[in-house]
Design a protein around this nucleic acid. Structure first.
Length: 580
RNA sequence: GUGCCUGUAGCUCAGUCGGAUAGAGCGUUUCCCUCCGAAGGAAAAGGUCGUGCGUUCGAAUCGCAUCAGGCACACCA
């Protein structure tokens, strides 16, 4: 990267200056002390380093230090200048043109870092109950999780995506009971869910079970006639399983449509059946961090930083949700992953300490578990925030996607830091204008494609009706793409500085984004690149009579198209259309 | 009451490890299509970085306090 190149040169020169005694009392330099930043004012240069932090030890002014460094530095065709304690750097033509050549050479792999230590990562996200359709909050985890998986893979890790199905416990029972009511309604019985708040909580009164009830009736005519349509005679387990499977297949179909691809769906039920949960309880007991109180079995998680102890076996002998979750995480570790990354909603943050505590108690390294807590999503309709009620007035992810499309939904769900509450403005996400960042970026891509199309197409003169030959033959164009070398960019390198530097930035964006697990920086980047490109386009005519200049600019257009496509399709999971 | 997240332009948000004059988009105002996609571009206006104290040569950034909003504090999952 250009900024690394700059920093290396500065550090090398600084060390040399130190050895010659030119930097006051500074006797050694520790790598990493100096940091490359962006100058506030672009006139100063492309990158800058502030040496003020060294002044304290050197006991000479920052300006003197900066000058001592610049005197020695290997300049090549780059420019170094000193203003105050800053050393500014302006990249020369070699660095800039080489960068474009690099994009041509690496193409889809442009920006992929080298020498990354590959970690085997298990990324768990969404992990919803199979008791209903996804709501828009799940959409955020779905979009972020899948994009993060793409990013980490691209970065060089080995990523395994897993969805934990909470298909055990009382809510499945509730689902069966709710389906029973829907079936009875379908069979003509005058019955409804209880109106009492407390009792109603034992059901899922959403409309979504109505079609499931219809399907159940169609599929089970024999059974129903055998019991004379008396639903109460049907085993609830049968109803539960039926509803569960329906919900699961609905969820999976949505995920497919939403471009989210899991490697595995891990069922909580199988965890119980395999005996792994009991095994886990026994192991905890053996660890000695267990005691009994009020008839229940408690895990002393407070010994590991949790604010209180937790029940792992209830007084009635059944396990808690936590117990299964502990077993699940231990199972993940035993499957040999170097790192577990979970995306959880912020409403589960109280859970972090207890799961980490259990991992530690069972002798594993809790730092292997990384939990990304995501703030929740608010829906904005007609400028008004719609709070997401638990079960009433639920806007499903399906509805949202149908309303605004997969691309816009994915982009909007990813464009904010995981730490901020996301306001999802439906009207805005639907608009096809500059108010909508997705469109803005896709438009830049389509525009680039359009130029690349036009340059090899015959043009019709609308006044004379004559056909004009294509500015570039197919052959010439293909040669340009396959044989591009740095020098060919020279005719436009000066006018395209900003654009080229923005393309270069992709490498560092990928790096920091992957390291901090924050995908939204890529959404921002892609908007900035689009903006730089639009600006370049307006200032410089690509297709023109000077063939060398045209080829140079075409190379840039191709580079922008490539980077936009890579970021959108390979990382963000948003289509990069060639026409709109 | 305790813990976590947030507070920056009218709105939605960036701001990297503490550094140069505080950064975008939308909205507002002005300008730019005989010509590659104007779904675009150029420019202007717009700020007590919630508030106070502290650390520092230097604070939106670090610490403490405080105010405001969100989330969570189960033998539910």
């Amino acid at each position: 990267m250009i900024k690394d190149y700059f920093l290396e040169n500065i550090e090398k020169s600084l060390k040399h200056a130190i050895s010659e005694g030119k930097v006051g009392q500074l006797s050694e330099y520790k790598d990493g002390t100096l940091v490359v930043e962006r100058p506030k004012n672009a006139d100063f240069g492309d990158y800058a380093v502030n040496v003020s932090s060294l002044a304290r030890f050197a006991r000479i002014s920052p300006v003197q230090i900066a000058n001592a460094i610049v005197e020695n530095v290997e300049q090549d065709d780059n420019e170094y200048s000193v203003i105050g304690g800053f050393i500014n750097f302006k990249a020369g033509k070699k660095l800039l043109t080489n960068l474009i050549e690099e994009i041509f050479k690496k193409n889809k792999n442009f920006g992929k870092p080298e020498n990354v230590e590959c970690e085997k990562i298990l990324l768990e996200y969404i992990s919803a109950n199979p008791t209903g359709p996804f709501h828009i909050g799940h959409g955020r985890w779905a979009a972020m999780g899948s994009a993060l998986a793409n990013l980490l893979k691209f970065y060089g890790h080995d990523v395994y995506q897993e969805f934990y199905i909470n298909d055990a416990g009382s809510q499945i029972q509730k689902l069966g009971n709710s389906l029973a009511i829907r079936i009875r309604q379908q069979l003509g019985e005058n019955i409804d869910f209880p109106t009492d708040e407390a009792e109603r909580k034992n059901y899922y009164p959403g409309d979504y079970l109505i079609p499931v009830a219809k399907k159940f009736i169609e599929d089970n005519i024999e059974l129903l006639t055998r019991v004379h349509n008396d639903v109460s005679q049907i085993d609830v387990q049968l109803l539960s399983d039926f509803a569960k499977e329906e919900m699961e297949s609905l969820q999976m179909a949505l995920l497919e449509n939403f471009r989210v691809h899991f490697d595995n769906f891990y069922s909580e039920l199988t965890l119980h059946k395999s005996g792994k949960v009991d095994e886990c309880v026994n192991k905890l007991k053996a660890s000695g961090k267990i005691y009994e109180k009020d008839g229940a079995v408690w895990f002393k998680s407070s010994d590991y930083g949790d604010d209180q102890d937790r029940v792992i076996k209830k007084a009635d002998g059944s396990n808690t949700y936590l117990t299964a979750d502990i077993a699940y995480h231990i199972d993940k570790l035993e499957r040999g992953f170097d790192r577990l990354i979970n995306i959880w909603g912020a409403d589960h943050h109280g859970y972090v300490a207890r799961v980490k505590a259990s991992i530690e108690a069972l002798g594993y390294d809790p730092s292997k578990l990384e939990i990304l807590l995501g703030q929740l999503v608010n829906l904005v309709i007609n400028g008004e925030e719609v709070r997401m009620g638990k079960r009433k007035n639920m806007v499903t992810l399906d509805d949202l996607i149908e309303e605004v499309g997969v691309d816009a939904t994915r982009f909007w769900m990813q464009m904010r830091s995981i730490d901020t509450t996301l306001d999802f403005d439906i009207e805005l996400a639907k608009t096809n204008s500059d108010e909508n960042p997705v469109f803005y970026v896709q438009y830049a891509h389509a525009r680039a494609c359009s130029i690349l199309r036009n340059v090899i197409s015959e043009k019709l003169n609308t006044e004379t009706g004559e056909k004009q030959p294509a500015p570039l033959s197919q052959d010439e164009f293909e040669k340009l793409i396959t044989n591009f070398h740095a020098d060919m960019l020279l005719p436009t390198v000066d006018t395209a500085r900003k654009l080229i530097l923005k393309l270069e930035e992709y490498k560092s964006v990928i790096k920091t984004s992957a390291q901090t697990r924050q995908v939204y920086t890529i959404c921002r980047y892609v908007q900035e690149l689009a903006s730089e490109f639009h600006s370049f386009y307006n200032a410089n005519r690509v297709i023109n009579d000077d063939k060398d200049l045209m080829k140079a600019r075409l190379a840039l257009v191709w580079s922008v198209k490539t980077v936009l496509r890579n970021a959108l399709e390979d990382i963000l999971g948003v289509t990069a259309p060639e026409r709109m």
